[in-house]
């Protein structure tokens, strides 16, 4: 997976600015994903590429439109040194996998990364470095594996 690299404190106003939240569909909103930080992101991002942030990724507003536009563009995994709380919860609820990697700052724009889920390893094919992946707690894993909170609660009941 190709890396799209962002820095510390990427807030949800950067992921989807407030002026676009009234657009009637997620598809229209998604065209403005991360616009203040990377104006060409929505046009250039290809589904399945890896989003990487520094500390406190997703801080700020609770807007679930932020992880939803990322999901709309095909983001399945986000890796960061740390995540903000509401964004973390929103991603789990939407079935987007979050990986906390203390060394996420060593990944750079354009690096090729492979995630080996079986052996819980992250392999940077560009730099040949390997990292241990800390597994998500069982509770969160159950929700993500169900595809999000909606299906998790439906199956539970």
């Amino acid at each position: 997976m190709k890396v799209w690299k962002f820095g510390d404190n990427v807030d949800t106003d950067q992921i989807i600015p407030s002026q676009y939240l009234v657009l009637p569909t997620m598809r229209e909103m998604a065209q403005h994903t991360l616009e203040p930080l990377a104006p060409q992101f929505a046009q250039q991002y290809k589904a399945g590429e890896l989003l990487v942030g520094g500390h406190n990724f997703g801080c700020g507003s609770s807007r679930e439109q932020a992880p939803t536009v990322l999901k709309e563009l095909g983001v399945k995994v986000i890796m960061a040194q740390s995540f903000a709380r509401i964004f973390f919860r929103n991603c789990i609820n939407l079935g987007v996998l979050l990986i906390e990697l203390p060394e996420a700052n060593e990944l750079e724009q354009g690096h090729e990364v492979k995630i080996d889920y079986t052996h819980a390893k992250i392999i940077n094919k560009t730099t040949k470095k390997e990292y241990e992946m800390v597994p998500m707690s069982d509770f969160f894993k159950k929700i993500v594996n169900s595809g999000g909170l909606v299906d998790y609660l439906k199956n539970k009941n």
Binding site: G60, S61, S62, R63, E64, P67, I86, R89, N90, N93, L94, G148, L149, V150
Partner: peptide
């Protein structure tokens, strides 16, 4: 996200997203 404000009255309050 600013739902944490109600702690000023001694209430537990927190912000969440739309699915929650």
């Amino acid at each position: 996200s600013h739902t944490c404000s109600y702690g000023c009255l001694g209430a537990f309050s927190t912000g969440m997203g739309s699915t929650d």
